[in-house]
Amino acid sequence: MSSAVDLAPKTSFQGLILTLQRFWAAQGCVILQPYDMEVGAGTFHPATTLRALGPKPWKAAYVQPSRRPKDGRYGENPNRLQHYYQFQVILKPNPPNLQELYLASLDAIGVDLKLHDIRFVEDDWESPTLGAWGLGWECWCDGMEVSQFTYFQQVAGFECSPVAGELTYGLERLAMYVQGVENVYDLNFNGAEGDDKVTYGDVFLQAEQEYSRHNFEAADTTMLFRQFTDAEKACRTYLDAGAPASETERHKMAQPAYDQCIKASHVFNLLDARGVISVTERQSYILRVRELAKACGAAWLKTAGGGAA
């Protein structure tokens, strides 16, 4: 028999995740699993990017592993990771009490609102690669940014109608805060103590070291350049292949095309981390991904999910 595990958010990383999932499930969200592709942020998940478009109501929450190749620190920095978890909530249209719901979720994970100073500090969100922007805040708890709160105004170049509210919790940071830990690798992952205790470092330290090496030193740039072009091409091909033949028909392949857009974006991030993209080229790569995102958004709006008749 294993020793008792404590799944309170204050004692385990997974307890924090489970609590957030339960909280948002109770609000009527579908609890999804991470998207099965490499993305830079939870926003890239089609459950946010694509579902934010079109008139249909949508409520979802999920954990999304996020990859930021440039943020790798070979496991040596207590706060920075090239792979980390975001907890993403999207509510379309945003309910009028979204701020209160957010605060209730903090309470649920053990942040006592009588004890801690929660603040909404201006932070307008923009994703140049997704052609998306919104207004909102970074949410501070005692001076630490623990979440992003955004009212999407535009995604993939299209006005959001209605507007969706997006919450992104930085899980590691939040967990460090509630567990009172200074180093991310010291986080208790599973809530067990003694021999059974598994830390964040047990799970991810080696990966951080290996991927930092990969991202900065080894990633095969010839292959990556090729993959970028291939993904870009494939995205266009699938969009063309699924395109409706007439005004009354729907698009038939918006999501597979969008996968290629995600792929191109991640490949670009890797190339950027390898330092093989010059400042001027950088802008043009971002624009190329944005064009894909826009085309995919346009295609999505012609599907049932996008609200097409």
């Binding site: 249209p93 945003n94 109608s161």
Partner: peptide, 11 residues
């Protein structure tokens, strides 16, 4: 300087 729409009415 910057403004936004929100909620159901934003449609």
């Amino acid at each position: 300087p910057k403004s936004m729409r929100w909620g159901k009415a934003s449609a």
